[in-house]
């Protein structure tokens, strides 16, 4: 495995997947924070775990966007030397050179690289709100609802980035 492969995997399959896989568990954790469903002891135990979990997920998705933007993306968009016909090492140009694959850049990559940044901002907001209110969130259904909406937005943005990242890597891997 080359350094490029390692970083691409770390970006998507480690940081990105930690967030995507952790989302459902954390969302259920927030949803379950209802005073009528939990004992005080249960609430306190749950909320402490949830606080740590949400900050870890927020950190993972920040790490995903930063490694993606500043380590992997420069390899993806690097321009080939003039006259080079083998574009295998220049994914952006490889995709655009063929009409049947240009979509993966002009739609997929263009969407992914921008929308992804909404995810860490929304996830950080969610982690902060749960940190701030803690167990009191069980008695604040409206705020809990908004937390779940923001968290779902964070997931949607990360999922778009993850899905297109996987397809683009398949169509034109970074070598």
């Amino acid at each position: 495995m080359s350094a490029n492969d390692l970083w691409t995997t770390t970006h998507g399959m480690v940081f990105g997947f930690i967030f995507l896989l952790g989302f459902a568990g954390a969302l259920v954790g927030v949803y379950m924070m209802k005073a009528e469903w939990l004992t005080t002891e249960g609430t306190n135990a749950n909320v402490n775990r949830l606080r740590v979990f949400l900050w870890l997920l927020a950190a993972a998705v920040w790490a995903a966007v930063f490694t993606g933007t500043y380590i992997v993306y420069p390899w993806y968009r690097a321009a080939p030397p003039e006259g080079l016909t083998d574009l295998a090492n220049f994914p952006r140009y490889l995709l655009l050179a063929n009409e049947s694959t240009a979509f993966w850049h002009s739609f997929g990559m263009e969407w992914k690289e921008h929308v992804a940044f909404i995810s860490p901002m929304a996830a950080t907001v969610v982690a902060f709100v749960v940190q701030y209110y803690g167990a009191a969130l069980t008695r604040k259904p409206e705020i809990r609802r908004w937390v779940m909406i923001f968290f779902t937005v964070a997931f949607f943005a990360a999922a778009v980035a993850g899905i297109f990242g996987a397809f683009i890597t398949k169509a034109a891997p970074i070598r």
Binding site: M121, V129, Y132, A136, I143
Partner: peptide, 24 residues
């Protein structure tokens, strides 16, 4: 659960949500 936690003002939470919206 401490009463003070339940009665925490929502200003900081509103600030965080609106900041998330502004950033996006």
């Amino acid at each position: 659960m401490a009463t003070t936690e339940i009665n925490k003002p929502n200003g900081p939470v509103a600030a965080a949500l609106l900041a998330g919206g502004i950033g996006s």
